[in-house]
Design a protein around this nucleic acid. Structure first.
Length: 572
RNA sequence: GGGCCUGUAGCUCAAUUGGUUAGAGCAGAGCGCUCAUAACGCUUUGGUUGGGGGUUCGAGUCCCUCCGGGCCUACCA
């Protein structure tokens, strides 16, 4: 029994996420959280929406709504989709919460007291027509290098040359197209990450068990060029955590907010506080997860994220935590993911290319997606979604191997013995070889799950499903029934128990199906099986059950082709 | 430009970190079964590990080089 704190990278508020986003953080985090809970650990699983920043303001403006209202609506949309995919967050918070405001300001103040905040005056492009400062990439113009006329202020997408907004010929606002731009001076707070470089490097070096993807990105930022750079942590925006507040150790920062990447990770902590608030608990309830001096010394903290988030979680956020001088919990393990591509290219929100979370659930239940996405998680390299592969995996793994096993066993039992676990025959299931094979898969499964080797875990789980069919084929109760009814009854009894066993161990991957099966098997006890053999005697003779409807339907070629065409791009 | 990752069977992926004859699933072929969602089981075809060179008793694994794919490069988040 351990205490495990799990956070998933928090999805940005401006729109519905696609399956690539889902499999890159939230879904694997959910798998791990469900498994950890099933094994009896105390789990705190936290996620939230990331609501601040320029894109949120622009999306709200485009929708013709005040940004707070827009975010509140989109939060509900994302919350509903999280629920739809059965993401089992203990709390799904909002980075715009009062809790995050207070904590973000607290951390900033502590950092200032520690001498780690510096005020810097810099020049930035201001769009008069838009009434706002524009981030570099929101300025468009002609590339001085190649003449491409839609070059962005940070980089030309055509020739890949790094640019400064002032390099652009005939610069214009990407928001309004206005050319009424001017360079204005503005003052910002910088986090002196460079001062913490040694400490951060030492910390990263101590994480020898982290994925290469995680540590190599961190080391690159630590050592590249002049080493870790200081980072601006404030912005000239309206929507965000105000920089100027009562007790702020600086002045003249009215009208500015903290940079979204400063407050977003702090939301992990804040959302845990939101959880306590929502459940009527006191401060100690959430602080025991986060404060080493208030009970968190035995917490193991695991973060899940896509590779694009790694620098912020390995450097910026730890710098915030360390720099505060307070005993906040640092992450123990970072599980990072590559990208999921869509049918030979990238998922594209703007072009509507690929499947988005809402569309996925309109087509098929969550478990179909969960199984495919998790069993193909982009752990070692970018992975690719194709409809052919999705169809084949779902039909074979779920419908044929698992679903059909449940079907053939329950229906055979109903026709020969009725809808109750039959009695008679020996109590000791399996021959030694089958038992050992099962236990071997189970041991591997548990090890991979604990180590967050998701694809490998899925493979072992599937092997357990397949082994049931192999064994049943050899056990052939349908033939045996004609000669030795008791022996056939015993084998069906084990098979029914095997169904219950599958439901419990498969639950982290396919929770809805597990629920359906356990309900059909009339089984409320979902204690994780300590061993394969003993688990197969859990349902005693006489125990009533019902034959469930087919667990999974197959995807037909025609509908696959239909979906292929429908999600190819140019979403309305 | 620089850095990192990656290339293994038609497809998706393994390979105990340098150790016998490179393994699985799917797809293909053959056989079996008839409980089941035309499902299941068994057998089987299929690889010059992107190309070339090197180190080593031994290389998918280490080094060099070339080719291809991807990500990051600090003001999107």
């Amino acid at each position: 029994m351990a205490r495990i704190l799990i956070t998933s990278a928090i999805p940005y508020i401006n729109g519905i996420k696609h399956l690539g986003n889902l499999v890159g953080s939230q879904l694997p985090a959910d798998l791990y959280a469900r498994y950890a809970r099933a094994r009896g650990h105390e789990v705190m699983f936290i996620c939230a929406t990331d609501e601040h920043g320029t894109p949120a303001e622009l999306a709200a403006a485009k929708a013709g709504k005040p940004v707070a209202e827009y975010c509140a609506e989109m939060y509900e949309v994302q919350k509903a989709l999280s629920d739809g995919f059965r993401l089992s967050f203990d709390h799904f918070g909002r980075s715009s919460s009062a809790r995050n405001r207070a904590l973000t300001q607290h951390f900033a103040a502590r950092l200032a007291e520690a001498g780690l905040i510096e005020e810097v005056t810099e020049s930035q492009v201001y769009s008069v027509a838009d009434g706002r400062f524009l981030p570099d990439r929101y300025i468009e113009g002609t590339c001085p290098n190649c003449g491409y006329d839609k070059a962005r202020g940070d980089q030309c997408e055509n020739c890949t040359k790094q640019l400064d907004p002032t390099d652009l010929i005939e610069p214009r606002s990407a928001v309004s197209g206005s050319t009424d731009l001017e360079v204005r001076e503005t003052r910002h707070l910088y986090l002196r990450q460079s001062a913490m470089r040694g400490k951060l490097a030492e910390w990263i070096d101590s994480k020898t068990d982290w994925p290469v993807l995680t540590t190599s990105i961190a080391k690159k930022w630590l050592n590249d060029g002049d080493g870790l750079q200081d980072r601006g942590i404030t912005r000239d925006l309206d929507w965000g955590v105000p920089v100027q507040f009562d007790g702020a150790p600086w002045s003249g920062m009215e009208g500015k907010v903290f940079y979204v990447w400063f407050d977003a990770p702090i939301e992990y902590i804040a959302a845990t506080a939101e959880w306590a608030d929502a459940n009527g608990l006191d401060e100690a309830a959430w602080r025991r997860w986060w404060r080493l001096d208030e009970g968190a010394e035995d917490v193991r903290y695991v973060q899940f994220m896509g590779k694009d988030n790694v620098p912020f979680h390995t450097l910026s956020f730890p710098a915030t935590i360390m720099g505060s001088g307070e005993p906040w919990k640092l992450v123990d393990y970072i599980k990072s993911f590559n990208y999921l591509n869509y049918d030979g290219g990238q998922f594209s929100t703007s072009q509507g290319r690929g499947v988005f979370m809402d569309q996925a659930l309109e087509i098929l239940p969550a478990d179909y997606w969960r199984w495919w996405l998790l069993s193909h998680a982009p752990e070692n390299s970018d992975a690719e979604f194709t409809w052919e592969n999705f169809q084949a995996s779902v039909n074979k793994d779920l419908a044929d191997v698992l679903g059909n096993f449940v079907s053939r066993v329950t229906k055979f039992c109903r026709s020969k013995f009725g809808e109750a676990v039959p009695e008679g025959g020996p109590d000791m299931p399996f021959d030694a070889a089958t038992r050992d094979a099962f236990q071997g898969y189970m041991n591997n499964y548990q090890r991979h799950m604990a180590e967050m080797d998701i694809r490998k875990a899925a493979r072992e789980l599937r092997a357990m499903w397949a082994l049931g069919n192999e064994w049943l084929q050899a056990a052939e109760p349908w033939a045996l029934y004609k000669q030795d009814e008791d022996e056939a009854a015993a084998r069906i009894r084990w098979s029914l128990n095997l169904i219950r066993f599958y439901a419990i161990v498969s639950a982290p991957f396919i929770p809805d199906t597990s629920d359906r099966v356990l309900e059909a098997m009339n089984c409320e006890d979902r204690t994780w099986p300590s061993g394969v053999e003993t688990a197969l005697t859990a349902l005693p003779p006489g125990h009533a059950f019902t034959v469930p409807d087919n667990l999974f339907r197959k995807i037909a070629d025609a509908e696959r082709e239909d979906w292929q065409a429908r999600f190819a791009g140019q979403r309305a």
